[in-house]
Design a binder for these strands. Sequence first.
DNA 1: AAGCACAGCAACCGCACGCAA
DNA 2: GTTGCGTGCGGTTGCTGTGCT
Length: 252
Amino acid sequence: MENTFRVRKGAWTEEEDILLRLCIQKHGEGKWYQVPSRAGLNRCRKSCRLRWLNYLNPNIKRGGFGEDEVDLMIKLHKLLGNRWSLIAGRLPGRTTNDVKNYWNTHLRKKEISRIKDDAKEKAQDIVKVNVIKPRPRTVTKKLTWLCGKPTIAKSFEPEDIVSNISPTLMLSENRPTKRWEGLLDHKEGDERALCTIIGLDEEPNRVHWGEKIAPETKMGDTFDDQDGLSCLADFSFDMSLWDFVNADQEIV
DNA sequence: AAGCACAGCAACCGCACGCAA
DNA sequence: GTTGCGTGCGGTTGCTGTGCT
């Protein structure tokens, strides 16, 4: 049977853009499954969403990436890997696609050659470096640390992962590396950020906030399912995180 | 001017996740 | 516990512009 209603693919026309923009202005973002019919567009909902998020959204910053943005991107990538949405979340006005494209076209080659160079250097010149590292810990994926206390989390949003570390880390300084100072500050009463980041490398599966665990619980403790916490995915530190931190220590 | 190679970017595709029924 | 739906993410593709020969 002939399909008379095939969805359009490929580049968007100005007319389609206008229709989509009007639709979003009228009904707001979300409910993408309704957008094609509301807007009168012969496009699939995914295509509409993507067009809005990557191109039509007025919050999108156009133009090339600044030095500061690139620096932040590199550091975030070192920390987060290819989690473009998280990286983009820390770069105001930049979309996931922007970040991914920029990385793939501008930075990937540089990064690869840098890694190769590092490997060569390390092979030639093995120097003992005394690096202070916190002990690996065994905690659960569903836990985070708040004021020195393990806390079962609720409604954890990925965007919070970095923003909650410290408000001063991400935005202020003129020197880009400074943003990352304190990332692993391991102070009494300020352990939440550290653990949150650790969890990140383990695919945090939505951490939950709010329900407190017994106050005597300590770092390194594990929990069992008897409490109904169902948490016991032990994990240890990802070494890449330490590479990241070490790199910064060298710079500072 | 024409042909080619490459880079940059927009868009598509497949998959995974959360949630409700 | 299972299924279906809606949504978001990351990898990949393919078109277009630009520079070089």
